[in-house]
């Protein structure tokens, strides 16, 4: 087996981000769309850490910078999760459905 390189991790991160985007586009369920955004966050976080790790030998501070950045991303994601799920529950109570097409009255 070959040595692990930056591309290995970038590939995983990119695939997860792509799956998140596809899920966000294709699914018609507010909760699953929200889970897809979480997948996108995870893909980006893997990429960030991989870049920082890649620069570890030449510039160690970049690795800690990337870790700090991902921690901030995680905090924002957690905050987003709290608010988004609260909103989803509120929307569900209004119309008893998770279909985002139920809230398209602003469209016309």
């Amino acid at each position: 087996m070959t040595e692990l390189t930056l591309e290995h991790y970038l590939a995983v991160g990119t695939i997860m981000f792509a799956i998140g985007v596809i899920g966000f586009m294709a699914r018609r369920n507010l909760i699953i769309m929200f889970l897809s955004t979480e997948l996108m966050f995870q893909g980006i976080a893997i990429d960030l850490i991989a870049f920082g790790r890649y620069r570890l030998t030449s510039n160690p501070e970049v690795f800690f910078a990337s870790q700090a950045f991902v921690i901030f991303v995680l905090v924002v994601a957690a905050a987003e999760a709290a608010l988004a799920l609260g909103l989803v529950v509120l929307l569900f109570r209004q119309k008893q459905t998770l279909d985002p097409q139920a809230w398209q009255e602003l469209k016309n």
């Binding site: 799956i19 294709a26 699914r27 889970l35």
Partner: peptide, 16 residues
């Protein structure tokens, strides 16, 4: 790495 990558990607497909 391959085990965890397969786990992450496979489960992500499962989410979708």
């Amino acid at each position: 790495f391959y085990v965890f990558a397969a786990m992450a990607v496979g489960s992500a497909i499962g989410v979708m």
